[in-house]
Protein backbone atom coordinates (compact mmCIF):
# COMPACT_ATOMS: atom_id res chain seq x y z
CA UNK A 1 0.00 0.00 0.00
CA UNK A 2 1.43 3.35 -0.98
CA UNK A 3 0.15 6.88 -1.40
CA UNK A 4 -0.19 8.98 -4.55
CA UNK A 5 3.07 10.85 -5.16
CA UNK A 6 1.38 14.26 -5.06
CA UNK A 7 -0.60 13.64 -1.87
CA UNK A 8 0.36 15.73 1.15
CA UNK A 9 0.43 13.99 4.54
CA UNK A 10 -0.93 16.16 7.35
CA UNK A 11 -0.87 15.56 11.10
CA UNK A 12 -4.46 16.21 12.25
CA UNK A 13 -5.45 18.68 14.94
CA UNK A 14 -5.17 17.12 18.35
CA UNK A 15 -2.29 14.84 17.37
CA UNK A 16 1.24 15.82 18.30
CA UNK A 17 4.76 14.57 18.69
CA UNK A 18 5.88 14.25 22.28
CA UNK A 19 9.11 13.14 23.92
CA UNK A 20 8.35 10.70 26.72
CA UNK A 21 11.10 11.37 29.26
CA UNK A 22 10.21 8.32 31.34
CA UNK A 23 10.68 5.90 28.44
CA UNK A 24 13.21 8.19 26.72
CA UNK A 25 11.45 7.82 23.39
CA UNK A 26 9.33 9.82 21.00
CA UNK A 27 5.63 9.08 20.85
CA UNK A 28 2.73 10.30 18.77
CA UNK A 29 -0.04 11.43 21.08
CA UNK A 30 -3.61 11.22 19.81
CA UNK A 31 -6.86 11.69 21.74
CA UNK A 32 -7.58 7.97 22.07
CA UNK A 33 -4.22 6.30 21.58
CA UNK A 34 -0.48 6.69 21.81
CA UNK A 35 1.95 5.39 19.21
CA UNK A 36 5.53 4.58 20.12
CA UNK A 37 7.91 5.89 17.46
CA UNK A 38 11.07 4.05 16.52
CA UNK A 39 13.91 6.24 15.17
CA UNK A 40 12.79 5.80 11.55
CA UNK A 41 9.16 6.51 12.41
CA UNK A 42 10.27 9.67 14.20
CA UNK A 43 12.36 10.71 11.17
CA UNK A 44 9.31 10.26 8.92
CA UNK A 45 7.09 12.35 11.18
CA UNK A 46 9.69 15.14 11.28
CA UNK A 47 9.46 15.44 7.49
CA UNK A 48 5.70 16.04 7.58
CA UNK A 49 4.94 19.76 7.67
CA UNK A 50 1.58 19.86 5.90
CA UNK A 51 3.02 21.33 2.70
CA UNK A 52 5.44 18.71 1.36
CA UNK A 53 4.25 15.92 -0.90
CA UNK A 54 4.68 12.23 -0.23
CA UNK A 55 7.11 12.07 -3.15
CA UNK A 56 9.25 14.89 -1.75
CA UNK A 57 9.32 13.29 1.69
CA UNK A 58 10.31 9.90 0.26
CA UNK A 59 13.09 11.44 -1.84
CA UNK A 60 14.41 13.39 1.14
CA UNK A 61 14.54 10.26 3.28
CA UNK A 62 16.12 8.22 0.47
CA UNK A 63 18.90 10.81 0.22
CA UNK A 64 19.28 11.08 3.98
CA UNK A 65 19.57 7.32 4.52
CA UNK A 66 21.25 6.53 1.19
CA UNK A 67 18.60 3.87 0.56
CA UNK A 68 16.74 2.84 -2.62
CA UNK A 69 13.83 5.18 -3.37
CA UNK A 70 11.52 2.25 -4.15
CA UNK A 71 12.11 0.74 -0.73
CA UNK A 72 11.64 4.06 1.06
CA UNK A 73 8.47 4.81 -0.90
CA UNK A 74 7.01 1.42 -0.05
CA UNK A 75 7.96 1.51 3.64
CA UNK A 76 6.89 5.12 4.22
CA UNK A 77 3.65 4.61 2.29
CA UNK A 78 2.78 1.56 4.37
CA UNK A 79 3.67 3.38 7.59
CA UNK A 80 1.56 6.44 6.77
CA UNK A 81 -1.32 4.25 5.64
CA UNK A 82 -1.17 2.47 8.99
CA UNK A 83 -1.42 5.82 10.75
CA UNK A 84 -4.29 6.89 8.47
CA UNK A 85 -6.43 3.87 9.26
CA UNK A 86 -5.88 4.66 12.95
CA UNK A 87 -7.10 8.19 12.17
CA UNK A 88 -3.90 9.83 13.32
CA UNK A 89 -2.79 10.98 9.88
CA UNK A 90 -4.65 12.83 7.16
CA UNK A 91 -3.78 13.27 3.52
CA UNK A 92 -4.51 16.35 1.46
CA UNK A 93 -4.56 16.01 -2.31
Amino acid sequence: MTLPAASIPVIPRGVRLHHDKVRNQWVLLAPERTISLDPIGHAILLEIDGTRTFETIARTLADKYDAPLDQITSDVGEYLHGLMIRRIMDVAT
Binding site: D38, I40, D75, L83
Partner: peptide, 12 residues
Protein backbone atom coordinates in the same frame (compact mmCIF):
# COMPACT_ATOMS: atom_id res chain seq x y z
CA UNK B 1 21.89 5.20 10.93
CA UNK B 2 20.75 2.72 8.30
CA UNK B 3 17.21 2.60 6.98
CA UNK B 4 15.04 0.03 8.70
CA UNK B 5 11.36 -0.53 7.99
CA UNK B 6 9.42 1.41 10.65
CA UNK B 7 6.84 -0.37 12.77
CA UNK B 8 3.72 1.13 14.33
CA UNK B 9 3.46 0.08 17.95
CA UNK B 10 0.61 1.25 20.13
CA UNK B 11 1.22 1.86 23.81
CA UNK B 12 -1.48 0.25 25.88
Amino acid sequence: MAWKKPIIREIE
